[in-house]
Amino acid sequence: MSILNENPIAYPGHKLPPLFNMISLKNHVPDKLHIMLRITDRLWELVLQEIKNEGLFNDISRNIIIKEMEKLKIRFEFWKIRGTENWDYTSLMGDDKLRVLRNFNLAKLFDPERAALIKREIKTDPQYFRLKAKVWYELFLKKTVIDPETNNILEQGLYRSSDVTPYIHVLVSHKTLKNGGNFQNKTSAICEILEHENRLLFYTQNNVSLSYPKPQNIHIL
């Protein structure tokens, strides 16, 4: 931490001084559920951005997306922001995000090969994220391979390093996660910490013992 305080860019992925420089990075516990939800937000944004970049973000593609959402029983809408040419859309909730990323038929929007590649990238199995984060990250940054002679695309890539968010960096570079990265419940890490602190305060203020003697076996004849 002292190195980062003196030089915030000493390690890859760090640009600014630590916000809580009194706490070692080893003691930071990211909430895996929160990270996963924010990363799925980013992946869905990139899907929509790719459609826009291809010049295909029109009534046809928007209707396709809405109909696919209806199949997944998700209420989803697009609307034009007043006074601009920009569009906004319904924010997905936690369970809806998972259904979209797991079951949305991307082949309705992209060619089959491209759809399959994106589908690999947005695989959201918790164990996959926990155990193969770096493999997932390498796929995220998969580069497009171009034939230098013909300038034809030999292998389609995915996204750029500028598309990486702090949440993706935490997932790949910081291994200490709530519950070891398992989705045991949907309670955030900060809530569990506060609940634990509240219990300790109650026990302390009411002189409740935090430990008890080991029970003894009593044999009755």
Rank of each mutant, 00 (worst) to 15 (best):
T84A: 06
T84W: 00
E85P: 06
E85M: 09
E85W: 06
N86I: 09
N86G: 11
W87P: 03
W87T: 01
D88S: 12
Y89G: 01
Y89C: 11
Y89S: 12
T90V: 06
T90A: 04
S91D: 12
S91I: 11
L92W: 01
L92V: 03
L92F: 04
G94C: 06
D95S: 11
D95C: 10
D96T: 05
D96Q: 13
K97Q: 10
L98G: 00
L98N: 04
L98E: 05
L98D: 05
R99Y: 03
R99Q: 08
V100A: 05
V100I: 10
V100D: 00
V100E: 00
V100K: 05
F104K: 03
F104P: 00
N105P: 06
L106N: 00
L106I: 00
L106M: 04
A107W: 02
A107V: 09
A107F: 04
K108G: 01
K108A: 07
K108Y: 05
L109T: 02
L109M: 04
F110C: 02
F110W: 03
D111L: 06
E113T: 14
R114I: 05
A115Q: 01
A115I: 00
A115N: 01
A116T: 07
L117P: 02
I118F: 07
K119H: 08
K119G: 11
R120E: 10
R120G: 05
R120W: 04
E121A: 14
E121H: 13
E121V: 11
I122M: 09
I122P: 02
I122H: 07
I122L: 10
K123C: 09
K123S: 11
T124C: 11
D125T: 11
P126L: 03
Q127N: 15
Q127A: 15
Y128N: 09
Y128F: 14
Y128E: 08
Y128C: 05
F129A: 08
F129G: 05
R130S: 12
R130W: 09
L131A: 15
L131V: 14
L131Y: 15
K132V: 04
K132W: 13
A133I: 04
A133K: 15
K134T: 15
K134N: 15
V135Q: 14
W136D: 09
W136C: 06
W136A: 14
Y137M: 14
Y137K: 12
Y137L: 04
E138D: 15
E138R: 15
E138T: 14
F140N: 02
